[in-house]
Amino acid sequence: MPNLLFICSKNQWRSPTAELLFKNHHIHLAKSAGTSDKARIKVNQKMIAWADLIFVMERKHRQILEQNFQESIAHKPIIVLHIEDKYQFNHPELIYILQTSLQDYL
């Protein structure tokens, strides 16, 4: 069962919405985290180690991971979803974009 980690800045809207799409999924487990010091759940080494695939909402999140977890992410796929920080938690448009972007995993 592949472990999916979704990352945005504050772990309030985008990444928790993505995580929710995988709640009770029969193939994948999902978690979410943020890169900011103000994140609800801040990404850490344990989460990076747990993840088989890492999805970030923007390029800047990938860059932060590369700076802070360089060795840990060296052999992990990191997929940039290119989803701007303009959606509230569980917003229908955000769900649609995530479903479209993640259709191969849902």
Rank of each mutant, 00 (worst) to 15 (best):
S36T: 11
N68E: 14
K31F: 07
K10V: 14
Q103M: 08
E19C: 03
N3S: 06
H25Y: 01
L106A: 08
K31G: 00
M1H: 04
H75V: 11
E66Q: 13
M47K: 01
H75A: 14
A74F: 08
K46D: 15
I7Q: 11
S101L: 09
V43W: 00
A30N: 00
P2T: 11
I78K: 05
L21N: 08
R14A: 05
Y105F: 14
Q99A: 06
D104V: 05
P2N: 13
S72A: 15
S15P: 01
I27F: 04
S9D: 14
S9Q: 14
I54P: 06
V43A: 07
H75K: 15
H26M: 12
L65G: 06
N90P: 00
L106N: 03
N11Y: 01
D104T: 09
K42L: 04
F55C: 09
N44G: 02
N24D: 15
H61E: 03
Q88R: 14
Q70Y: 08
I7D: 11
A30M: 01
H28T: 02
E93D: 13
K31H: 12
Q103I: 10
L5A: 04
H28M: 01
H82S: 12
K76H: 11
L94I: 08
M47T: 08
L98E: 09
E93P: 03
I95W: 02
I48R: 03
I48S: 12
L106Y: 01
K23I: 01
A18D: 02
Q67M: 12
Q88S: 14
E58F: 05
H25P: 00
H28D: 01
D85Y: 14
L29G: 02
K60C: 10
V80S: 03
K31W: 13
K23R: 13
N90S: 07
K76Y: 03
E19Y: 00
Y105I: 01
S101C: 07
Y96M: 05
H75P: 00
F69D: 08
L94W: 06
K38S: 10
G34H: 03
C8Y: 10
L94N: 09
L94T: 05
N11S: 02
T17F: 06
V80Y: 07
L53D: 09
L65P: 02
F69V: 11
R62H: 15
M57C: 12
L53S: 03
I41K: 05
P77R: 15
S15I: 02
H61F: 04
C8V: 11
L98K: 08
R40N: 14
T100I: 07
A51S: 14
N68W: 05
I97C: 08
F89R: 09
I95G: 01
I83P: 04
K23S: 10
L53C: 09
Y96R: 14
S36A: 14
A39T: 10
I83W: 12
I83L: 12
N24Y: 03
Q45V: 13
W50Y: 05
